[in-house]
Amino acid sequence: MPVSQQPPETETKPVTDSVPKVAGDVAVGEDLDFQRRWWRFEKIVWTFFLLLIICDLIGLFGRGYLAKAQRTASDGTLRLTYERIERSSTPSIMTLHFGPSAIRDGQIKLFISESIVRRLGAQRISPQPAQSVVGNGGFTYTFPATTTPATVEISLEPSFPGREHFNMGVVGAAPIGGSVFVVP
């Protein structure tokens, strides 16, 4: 008699769940030490983002209260308002206000250092100077003026991040020095 091949007997076990249940729901354990560390991490991250937003609002990254600066020459010939914190490739305005003693023979002669034009990217000067002279580490501009208030605006657009120092002043008067920090 031929031996018939029978499939091997397989044991069938019911599938059981190894996760404990409480009242029919899965009981999930907790690791309170991990949870406390996670909460501490979240608090640090939220504090960091809050400080970042506050710094941005007050102008630490440009265009705010801390970014605005003002300098005045000791003899009162020139008052300068500008942004001490600027962003790279972003336009800004440097405004020069001249006092009555800055006007000599119906004109104002202004010296600005080379760093304003080259490193801070002076794009335009308004009003246009009647004369420009290059030399002595900067530029001397002559503007016609008969009365005060006389104002000149220099449009800046710095190209590279970093700290840039500058000097400017009415020729023959006390100069103003300052610096601009350019952020990326």
Rank of each mutant, 00 (worst) to 15 (best):
R79P: 01
G177C: 02
E86V: 01
T142L: 07
I154F: 08
F139R: 06
T146S: 12
A145Y: 10
G162H: 10
E114N: 03
L66I: 15
S101T: 08
R37W: 11
E157H: 12
G178A: 02
S159V: 03
L110H: 01
F166N: 02
K13R: 15
I44L: 15
E42Y: 12
F166H: 06
L120S: 00
T147D: 01
F61C: 01
E164W: 12
K109T: 14
N136Q: 12
R36S: 11
A174S: 08
L50W: 09
H165K: 12
E83H: 02
E86R: 06
S159D: 05
F181M: 14
E9Y: 04
P184Q: 08
E9Q: 07
S155L: 09
S88H: 04
G62H: 07
R118L: 14
E86C: 03
S101R: 03
N167H: 09
S4E: 12
P91V: 02
Q131T: 09
G99A: 08
G29L: 12
R119F: 08
P2N: 07
T142G: 05
E9W: 05
Q70G: 09
I54S: 11
T10I: 14
S18I: 14
Q5A: 14
R79C: 07
A173L: 13
R119M: 03
V22D: 06
P161M: 07
F41R: 15
P129M: 03
I54V: 15
G106W: 02
Q131R: 11
Y65C: 04
F166P: 02
R40I: 09
P161R: 06
P127D: 04
V3F: 12
E83D: 04
Q35C: 13
L80V: 04
G99N: 05
T10C: 10
P127F: 11
P158D: 05
V152C: 01
E11M: 13
L66E: 05
P158I: 06
R119Q: 05
Q35I: 15
P20Q: 12
L80G: 00
R63T: 11
G177P: 00
V133W: 03
